[in-house]
Nucleic acid binder design. Structure first.
Lengths: 213, 213
DNA sequence: TCATCCAGTAAACAACCGTTCTCCGAACTA
DNA sequence: TAGTTCGGAGAACGGTTGTTTACTGGATGA
C-alpha cells in the first residue's frame, strides 16, 4: 500500500492526531472558543509553539474535527436507507444505529452539538455544510421510495431536513441522558424518538391526500 | 408601583441590567465560556471589581440571562394555543409569532441556541429546565384539544416535545438565515417550517388509527 | 443631624494567554 | 556522505485574565 509514507511524515501525522484527540477530550467540558492552544499542547506533551506546525489556530483545528466527526455519518445513513424493510423496521434500525453511534463516538457527537451554534464562525459553517450534504443524501434516498411518488422535490427536501434534525436532536438528548447518570433516561429518549419518527412517517403517508396548496 | 424602590436600589438594578445587556451584546459573537468578566464591565464603564456586587461569576449571569430570554416564551405560547381556529390557521399563527419573536429579540434567541449545548453546566441545566416547563405547557394545551381524545399522556408529551423542538430549531435557523444576508432565505425557512408543522399535524390526526403498540 | 450601609473605585497580585524569534537534531535527498 | 529540510524546543514579549484587599462617598434610616 503506497510507499509507507516515511518516518518523518508518519510522526507528524501522529502528533497531529494527538492534538486532535487531546482537543476533543478537553472539549467535553468547554466550548471551542474558550479552548486555549497551550492547553492542548500541554496535554499532548509538546511545546506550545509546535502547534503552529499543524494548525494556524484553534478554529482550523475545529474544522478538521468537524470533518472527522461527521465524515462517518454518510456511511451510516447509506446503510440505513438502503434497506428495503417496512417503515417500522427501518425506524427501529435507524434509532438503533444512532444509539450505537452515540455510544461509540460520544465526544464527536458532543462536539458537533455544542459547536453547531457555537462561537466560531468557520466551525459553524463547516457543520452546516456537512449537515446540508447529509440532508441531501437523505432526500435522494427518500425520493426513490415508493411512498414518495407524486412528491415535489421541495417537499422531499423538507421531509429530509425534518428527519436529519430529529436524528441530531435525538443524538444530543441521548448523550445528555447518559451523562446525567439517570438509569432509564437513555431508554426513555430512545422510545420517544421512535414514536416521533413513527408519527412523522404516518404524516408522510397521508401527505398527498391531505395537503393542498 | 409600590414605594418607588429607593434611589440606591434603583441605581443598582440599573447597572445590573446594563451588565446583562452588555453581556448579551458581546455574546452575539462569542460563547459564554469565553466571555470575560472584565470585558463586560469595560463595556458598561465600571470597574471590574464592581461585577461581584451583582453576580458571583459569569455562570450566574448566564442563568439570569436564560430566565430573561425564555420567560417571555410562556406568555407567547399561551396566546397561540388558546386560539380555537382550525389547524391550518394555528400553524400559520404559530410560525408568525416565532418569526416576530426572533426579529424582536434576536440576541436572546442566539444566546439560547448557543448555550443550550454550551460549555457552562449551570446554564445548560437552566435552559433544559425552562424548555421542559415549556413542553409541559404545550402538552397541557394539546391534551385539551379534541384531536387528542384517546391519547395517553406519554404520547401527548412526545408530541409536545416534537413541537417545541421544531420551534426552537426554526427560530435558530431563521436567525442564521437573516444573519447570512441572503435575500429570500428567511422566507424559505418560514415556508419549510410551516410545511413541517403541517406534516406533523397530519400525522397527529392519523395517529390513533394507525399506531398500534 | 449623625452613624451606618454599600455600590463602585483603585491598586496590586500571580497566573495565564497567543505569538515571535532563534536554535537544535534527526530524518530526508542528492 | 554532505547538505538540506523541518518538526519540535526554549526563551522571551506584551497583554489579558480573575480575584483580593483597602478605601471613598453618597444614599439611608434612626
Amino acid at each position: 500500500m503506497s510507499h509507507s509514507l516515511g518516518v518523518r511524515q508518519a510522526q507528524k501525522q501522529k502528533t497531529r492526531q494527538a492534538l486532535l484527540d487531546a482537543a476533543l477530550g478537553l472539549l467535553e467540558e468547554q466550548s471551542l472558543s474558550s479552548l486555549g492552544l497551550r492547553e492542548v499542547t500541554r496535554v499532548v506533551g509538546i511545546a506550545p509553539t509546535a502547534f503552529y506546525r499543524h494548525f494556524r489556530d484553534m478554529g482550523e483545528l475545529g474544522v478538521v474535527l468537524v470533518e472527522e466527526a461527521l465524515g462517518s455519518l454518510h456511511v451510516m445513513v447509506r446503510a440505513i436507507l438502503a434497506e428495503q424493510d417496512g417503515a417500522e423496521e427501518r425506524i427501529d434500525r435507524t434509532v438503533a444505529v444512532v444509539e450505537q453511534h452515540v455510544r461509540r463516538y460520544p465526544l464527536h457527537i458532543r462536539f458537533v452539538a455544542r459547536e453547531r451554534h457555537g462561537g466560531v464562525r468557520a466551525v459553524r459553517q463547516a457543520i452546516a455544510g456537512e449537515l446540508d450534504r447529509f440532508a441531501e443524501e437523505v432526500a435522494a434516498a427518500l425520493k426513490s421510495q415508493p411512498v414518495s411518488e407524486g412528491w415535489c422535490d421541495d417537499d422531499v427536501r423538507m421531509l429530509a431536513e425534518l428527519y436529519v434534525d430529529r436524528l441530531v436532536t435525538t443524538a444530543a438528548a441521548l448523550l445528555d441522558a447518559e451523562a446525567d447518570g439517570a438509569e432509564g433516561a437513555a431508554e426513555q429518549v430512545v422510545r420517544v424518538a421512535r414514536r416521533q419518527l413513527r408519527l412523522i412517517s404516518i404524516g408522510r403517508r397521508h401527505w398527498r391526500e391531505e395537503h393542498q396548496e
